[in-house]
Design a protein around this nucleic acid. Structure first.
Length: 270
DNA sequence: ACACGATCCTGACTGC
DNA sequence: TGCAGTCAGGATCGTG
C-alpha cells in the first residue's frame, strides 16, 4: 500500500487522536514484523505523553517524552484509530492504547512493516542512508542530475532508491516518469539536466496531488478513519496496460524493470 | 561503488 | 472445486 502520500495521509489522520495525548500502554498480538517489536513495548511507552508527530521517508515517527515510536507500513500495513474495545481482526498485530478509550491499531497481513520504540530516532540505523525529502530544498533537478552521472541503472530504479530520494514507490515512479516524458528503462546517466528538472517537478507534483486525494487505494489501503484514497482515479499509466495513452492514444505497455511492474507509453516516453 | 537477484510474508487472482 | 503458479503499494542483504 504505502508510498509517501499514503503515509502522509495516515499521519494526518492519526494526528487528532495522538497530539498531546497520554499513552496508556500497548498490546502486541504478534511482534514478528520485519524487525521484532520491542518485547517490553508496553512498559517503554506506557505513561508517556505524545510530544510530536512527523514523517521521514515512509516512516511515521511518534515522538514521546522519552524516545519515539518508529512505524513503517511495509507493503500491506494500515494504521487506524478505533475504540479500544473493537474486536481485533486477523493481522491486527499491535494496539497502542490511548486515553479516552481509543487505540491505534496496526494491521499488516504481510508483516513487512515495523513498529519499534527507539531511544533516538534521528540517529537510528534505519534513518542513516536516506536521501532528501522530495519537498525539501535539497531535492531538485540539479541534484538528480548530479547524483546520476555515470550511472547506468534504469531511471525508474534510480528514483525508487531511497538513498537518492525518499518516498517514491512503484506507482508514483511510473506516474512521474510518464508526466516527465522519460522512458522508465532509460539509463539514469543518459538524461540531461533539463529533463531532470521536469522529472523533479513531476515527482513533487504527483506526490502533492496524491496527498490531496488521500492517497491511492488499489486493494486494501484505508486511511485511519477507514476511508479509501481516491488518487486511483487520477492514475494515468499504473495498471493500465493495453489501454490508450491519455496523451497520444497509443496502447500503454507493461514491462518488468528492476523486478517491478512498469507501465509506460513508448511514443510519449523516450 | 554499483547493479541485480533473492528474500521476508500472506492473500487475491488466474488458469488448468 | 482444488491446486499450482503468479503477482502485489517495500526494503535489505548478499553476490559478482
Amino acid at each position: 500500500m504505502p508510498e509517501l502520500p499514503e503515509v502522509e495521509t495516515t499521519l494526518r489522520g492519526i494526528a487528532p487522536h495522538l497530539d498531546g495525548r497520554l499513552i496508556q500502554g500497548a498490546v502486541v498480538r504478534n511482534g514478528r514484523l520485519r524487525l521484532p517489536v520491542n518485547p517490553d513495548l508496553a512498559q517503554r511507552i506506557g505513561g508517556q505523553r505524545v510530544r510530536r508527530l512527523q514523517r521521514r521517508a515512509k516512516y511515521l515517527i511518534i515522538e514521546l517524552e522519552n524516545g519515539a515510536l518508529l512505524i513503517h507500513l511495509g507493503m500491506s500495513g494500515t494504521l487506524r484509530a478505533v475504540p479500544a474495545d473493537t474486536p481485533p481482526q486477523p493481522h491486527d498485530h499491535v494496539d497502542i492504547l490511548l486515553d479516552r478509550g481509543h487505540c491505534l491499531r496496526l494491521r499488516d497481513p504481510r508483516r513487512f512493516g515495523l513498529l519499534l520504540w527507539v531511544a533516538d530516532w534521528r540517529h537510528h540505523p534505519l534513518m542513516r542512508s536516506l536521501g532528501p525529502e522530495p519537498f525539501a530544498d535539497d531535492f531538485s533537478g540539479a541534484y538528480l542530475h548530479q547524483r546520476s552521472r555515470s550511472r547506468r541503472q534504469a531511471i525508474k530504479s534510480f528514483i525508487m532508491d531511497a538513498g537518492v530520494v525518499v518516498g517514491v514507490g512503484n506507482i508514483y515512479a511510473n506516474e512521474a516518469l510518464f508526466q516527465a516524458g522519460i522512458h522508465p528503462a532509460r539509463p539514469a546517466g543518459s538524461i540531461g539536466r533539463t529533463r531532470y528538472e521536469r522529472l523533479a517537478a513531476a515527482i513533487r507534483g504527483v506526490l502533492m496531488q496524491a496527498i490531496a486525494a488521500g492517497g491511492t487505494t488499489l486493494r486494501d489501503y484505508a486511511d485511519p478513519s477507514g476511508k479509501a484514497g481516491y488518487f486511483v482515479l487520477s492514475l494515468q499509466v499504473y495498471d493500465r496496460e493495453g489501454r490508450p495513452c491519455l496523451t497520444c492514444g497509443s496502447a500503454l505497455r507493461q514491462a518488468r524493470i528492476g523486478q517491478r511492474s512498469s507501465f509506460f507509453c513508448v511514443r510519449c516516453q523516450r
